[in-house]
Every structure is written in structure tokens, then in C-alpha cells.
Nucleic acid binder design. Structure first.
Length: 110
DNA sequence: GCTCTGACTATTC
DNA sequence: CGAATAGCCAGAG
């Protein structure tokens, strides 16, 4: 594995690695990212992105219901529209939600 | 080395 | 459907 990410632990490296491998137009839920490297730490994944998200496409990592990270919904939407990520209208505060039925991605299918 | 916090998830009221 | 509660893991102080 190419440890191009300097992190405090292997967990951070794993998270950044998976997130960085997500192609444009595709998204993964925090649970899915954690599930990939066998560490069900959905919350920990978010923390890694909060501290090291500056180096990875954090907007491709969303919550289970297809909702973008709290406080970053507007910024995420700009990226989704720019990358052509399938979005769906939803009665959420952001007014939208990611179409997990089409945008759901897995490192196995690549 | 212990404690608090947090970009989460699932369940229940 | 929306708000509240509990459980979970890892990083920072």
C-alpha cells in the first residue's frame, strides 16, 4: 500500500487511502469506508476526515442516508454537481441528498 | 495513560 | 417524519 498520507496511526492511513480511491461521481458512506478495512468506526472515519480531510475528497464520503457531512452540505453539493454525482431532491435542510442507489461505490467493483 | 470530544449509526419514543 | 438515547471507535488534550 502506498502510504502517501502521513498520519498518526494506521487507521487514519487506511481511511485516507480508501477515500482517495473513490472515483469522481461515486460516493461511500462512513460505514462502508470503515467496513472496507474491517474497522466499524463510522465516527472515527469522520474524525479522520475532519483533521486530514484537507488531503482527500471528503465530499465523496457521506452518511448512511445519503446526507453530506454536517456543516459542509453546501460545499459538498458544489463538488457533486461539478463531478456529475447523481443527486436527489430531499426535504432535508440542504434541500438535497446523494442518490446512493446510483452513486454507491465499492473498492471491489472499482 | 486517562478523559473528553466528535464530519456516525441504529433503535426507540 | 422528527427528536432523543445508546453504542461504537479513534484522535487530541
Amino acid at each position: 500500500m502506498t502510504r502517501v498520507f502521513s498520519a498518526s496511526g494506521d487507521y487514519t492511513d487506511a481511511v485516507l487511502q480508501v477515500v482517495a480511491e473513490i472515483p469522481a461521481g461515486r460516493v461511500m458512506t462512513y460505514g462502508d469506508v470503515a467496513w472496507v478495512f474491517g474497522r466499524p468506526g463510522a465516527r472515527a472515519v469522520g474524525m479522520v476526515l475532519r483533521y486530514h480531510g484537507s488531503a482527500v475528497p471528503w465530499w465523496r464520503v457521506i452518511r448512511a442516508g445519503g446526507h453530506p457531512p454536517s456543516g459542509h452540505e453546501a460545499a459538498a453539493r458544489e463538488h457533486y454537481e461539478a463531478e456529475g454525482t447523481p443527486l436527489l431532491p430531499a426535504p432535508t435542510p440542504a434541500g438535497y441528498r446523494v442518490d446512493l442507489a446510483k452513486a454507491s461505490w465499492s473498492p471491489d467493483r472499482a
